[in-house]
């Protein structure tokens, strides 16, 4: 009896918090049939925003995957002073508000008054109000997701298989490619999907660093806000629906593909 009550509570909770609101976004996106969707897909500025969002997300995910796996290996396989501090630092992006991240990045990389920005600008490299800044902000907020997925898997797998590979003649690169990577594969994939979803949806930090220039640095999430504030609810819902669709599709695909015994 208690079991069913608990289940019902969880289902109701998820329904009212996640499923129902998401469904309503979809419903509103299709309120006029396909008009809203075709409307935004025919607007070159919005198509640019969607393309920019996907580009930024893909670059950010690649960077976060490479560094994420590297940092995870460092955290699990090596002992060094300050390891706990590093581990705690890695949670900062999750706990600090993205808008703070955005402001912080402007302080460092801002073209006119930033600590590091003017030097970069003189070298012909603009960060803030440009694509690199958007990538930087996105990388920052999604940084811990790969690490938090990979670290527990690495810990569980242990290092005996790696030692066995070394004793059989494999060097560090061969050991990583043939033994470590296949054993943490699902952790990495899940981390990639989570950071992809997070990167597509980043709003606060991007809003501060991008400058929100239509057709240049405006991303999909910024389009949603803009349209919503300008009473173009149909367009806002349609864009929001596309964003949610990609993220949810990624997560569902992976949970179906992921082998059950892997957890």
């Amino acid at each position: 009896m208690a079991k069913y009550a608990l289940r019902l509570t969880v289902i109701a909770y998820l329904f009212f918090l996640v499923a129902w609101p998401l469904y309503l976004v979809g419903k509103n996106a299709f309120a006029n049939g396909l008009d809203n969707i075709t409307g935004i897909l025919e607007d070159p500025d919005i198509v640019h925003a969607l393309t920019l969002t996907v580009q930024v997300a893909v670059i950010a995910v690649i960077i976060n995957t490479v560094f994420g796996v590297g940092i995870s290996l460092l955290l699990v396989r090596y002992e060094f002073p300050g390891k706990r501090l590093l581990s705690a630092m890695l949670d900062v992006p999750l706990s600090v508000s993205p808008i703070v991240v955005g402001l912080a990045l402007v302080l460092v990389y801002g073209g006119r008054n930033g600590w590091f920005g003017p030097a970069l600008e003189n070298a012909g490299f603009q960060v803030i109000f440009s694509t690199p800044g958007i990538v930087l902000a996105t990388v920052f907020v999604a940084l811990p997701l790969v690490i938090r997925e990979v670290v527990p898997v690495l810990e569980e797998v242990g290092d005996e298989q790696e030692q066995a590979a070394r004793s059989l003649g494999a060097n560090a690169v061969q050991t990583f490619r043939r033994i470590t990577l296949p054993s943490i594969k699902w952790g990495v994939i899940y981390g990639v999907v989570l950071s992809l979803a997070r990167s597509l949806g980043e709003f606060g930090a991007v809003k501060v660093v991008s400058g929100n220039v239509l057709g240049q640095t405006r991303t999909a999430t910024l389009v949603v806000e803009e349209k919503y504030l300008n009473f173009d609810k149909g367009g806002a819902y349609a864009t929001a629906f596309l964003l949610a669709l990609v993220a949810v599709a990624c997560i569902i695909t992976v949970s179906i593909l992921r082998p059950k015994e892997d957890r």
Binding site: E160, Q161, Q163, A164, R166, S167, L168, N171, I179
Partner: peptide, 20 residues
């Protein structure tokens, strides 16, 4: 010498089988 250059065979207590 690093382990891969020593040409030794090593067998672990918990097998260290390559699971995949």
């Amino acid at each position: 010498l690093p382990p891969q250059k020593r040409n030794v065979g090593f067998v672990f207590q918990h097998y260290a089988a390559f699971k995949h």
